[in-house]
Design a protein around this nucleic acid. Structure first.
Lengths: 380, 380
DNA sequence: ATACTTGTTGGTAACGATTCCGGAATCGTT
DNA sequence: AACGATTCCGGAATCGTTACCAACAAGTAT
């Protein structure tokens, strides 16, 4: 049980001043290789870890990255977290979790943002699927706080990381077209999320490419969850036979599960009577009956890229401290000019890939290798 | 954009010293109602929020709660987080996320613990499904850090919150027995997790209660995930007919999905040829074919109770600051005596409930209402 | 040899809040 | 009118670290 060893203790043991220890800690300034070595050994021996708290206070910058996560349960969040943790664990940074309820929009949103702002606790923000909240994030970003958004953004200002939803949806629908389907329905997600639009657009593009005009009657809106998928499917199944779709592209696997239930109830076979393709490649999708053809997103990589981007922005706003400081040292001469990020918005787009299983009625031999994916592959 | 208002600014505006402001902030000491009022108004006007960093440094205690989460994807984690966030959002505390990889045990474990210890960043720890790491947590707890464990603990020292896995499993198996099954197999989880043992014990108990001796050949071990469930099921399905089980109780829904796959491949019908019951009530379980009978855990409540317990422990170790301080003020007179928590270990057990669907072959009318659950109920 | 770099190091003042302790104001008693 | 008690408030030290600036040694140019 280490009895709280401080930087001063290390300094004493190494026979130097705490300034020097601090220097080797932050690899700033010149330190004689010999002393650096010595200090580092002592640090190791004492298993000394500088107090984040004190460092934050003194240095004016914190080692904490805020992570905004909606309580709304996206299935890919756990995988995303894995990617994020993977990176964070190799840095001196820690994650602060801000969870907010995306449902009751009015209250929670500004409260959370205020909390993030006010405590001045974090050096940067990684927002996962911000949905409606993303407007508020823009404000934060413009005030100089490094912010990165994962997967959801309408205006084009904040750095972001996202999967190529358009192409993913395009691949899915193209696949159905190649299997001979012409009346293809789409169950889209709520309009608050960019992903909903992107997937819809991919759907449109694939149809239009082969000269099919999208039929508005075949495009329904769900909320990403199974019950809504079931409800939409029921609407489709009661259409007169000539108007009924022969295939359905659901914007999430979860909604596809709902479609499966509805089909069973209506005595329709999948893929015999209707083909079905989902989106997300949730774990259970390989195990439902029939196994679900779907689009896989590189969740792990998205998390990884996202946090790396935040970290690089934070680092960048530390280096050119000269100008950036104007943000915090409120000069007495009146208004402190807000200094936006000089870095151009970084956008990282990751690729999606088609996973062919039984629910689309494919013989598993369709030529889909020309997809732009590196991860393609049928799985058990 | 608040230009970083400090406690000193508030003090000036209110015409008092920062000491007084601090007092109204922490409701310590006596402050004249009038001045308190005035100060509070200024605080409100300036939307001043004290810096957690500075407060932590000065006060010796932090407003951060560490949350240990394995990267291993438990399906109930999102729901658990919701419960935790729900509570935290109404307190001045924030969550720090420590994610660790439960797979490569040797390295990550001590690293994480060291990190938690060393940075002295958090006032308490909430550990979710710690599995193998739980021994290390005991050490932390004994050193005086408030620690609460959710769902996993072998020695009986740390406060914990858990679902009643034994009774859950008991209910599941009892239900199968009531349906007439006698040869009931169990696919259990890895021995590192307490839940695996508990569920196995519930299984045993239900069998023994009706005079059936558990057949070791019918108890297999998986790793909670679908492929392992499939592998175990295959082992069972190749048994000679007279030894083959007529029902399977899988320790997780995910493994049950694997069983479903295996059954299909072997041309066995569920529940016709084998009945199946899972555990966890994952979202997709209502949508697989056939819908899965399972045991539901109150994940949300578990999260809620867990964080509340941590918070109360933290509060308790703040109040009687006198003795507790001996922990941190390492006296010169030699060894600092370690002061264990005076509070008796709190244990909170939440109830589980049987969700009857089609996979067990029940007609949905079995009398299972005598379960100890308040949440019972068949769902679509 | 002197002055001037260059490279290293130490001293000291922040950072923003809490906490201990002593002093002033208020009040009721004798 | 004076006194202690009680309430309320301010001064100054402190937490562990970083930032800034001055100081010192050694090496090089003059």
């Amino acid at each position: 049980m280490p009895k709280k060893v401080t930087i001063l203790d290390v300094a004493r043991l190494a026979g130097v001043s705490r300034t020097t220890v601090s220097r080797v800690l932050n690899q700033k300034g010149e330190v004689d290789p010999a002393t650096r070595e010595r200090v580092q050994r002592i640090i190791e021996e004492q298993s000394f870890v500088p107090s984040l708290t004190a460092a934050g206070l003194a240095g004016g910058h914190s080692r904490l990255i805020g992570m905004l996560v909606p309580t709304f349960t996206w299935t890919m969040i756990p995988e995303l977290l894995r990617g994020i943790a993977d990176v964070i664990n190799n840095t001196p940074y820690e994650l602060v979790l801000y969870s907010y309820n995306d449902e009751d929009l009015s209250r929670d949103q500004s409260v959370i943002i205020k909390r993030v702002m006010a405590t001045q606790l974090t050096a940067g923000i990684l927002a996962v699927f911000p949905g409606r909240i993303s407007a508020q994030l823009t404000r934060l970003y413009q005030q100089g706080l490094p912010v990165v958004v994962i997967d959801d953004q309408f205006d084009q200002t904040i750095p972001w990381v996202h999967a190529d939803n358009v192409t993913g949806a395009y691949l899915a629908v193209q696949h159905l077209i190649q299997l001979g389907h012409r009346r293809i329905a789409h169950i889209q997600g709520p309009p608050e999320y960019l992903a909903s639009h992107d997937r819809y657009n991919g759907y449109r593009r694939a149809l239009q490419e082969v000269g099919i005009t999208p039929d508005p009657e075949l495009v329904l809106t769900g909320d990403f969850l199974p019950p809504s998928g079931r409800a939409c499917a029921e609407q489709l199944f009661v259409l007169p036979p000539e108007k009924r779709p022969t295939a359905i592209f659901a914007a999430t696997d979860q909604m596809a599960y709902g479609v499966l239930s509805a089909a069973e109830e209506h005595g329709l076979s999948v893929p015999g009577d209707v083909a079905l393709v989902g989106f997300d490649d949730d774990t259970p999708s390989a195990h439902v009956r029939p196994p679900l053809t779907t689009i896989r997103q590189p969740s792990f990589e998205m998390g990884k890229s996202g946090i790396e981007l935040v970290l690089s922005l934070v680092a960048a706003s530390d280096e050119p401290a000269a100008q950036q400081h104007s943000l915090f040292k409120s000069t007495k001469d009146g208004s402190t000019p807000v200094q936006p990020h000089p870095i151009k918005p970084a956008r990282i787009e990751l690729q999606t890939s088609l996973i062919v299983r039984a629910s689309c009625g494919s013989s598993y031999h369709v030529d889909w290798q020309h997809s732009n994916s590196k991860m393609g592959g049928t799985q058990s």
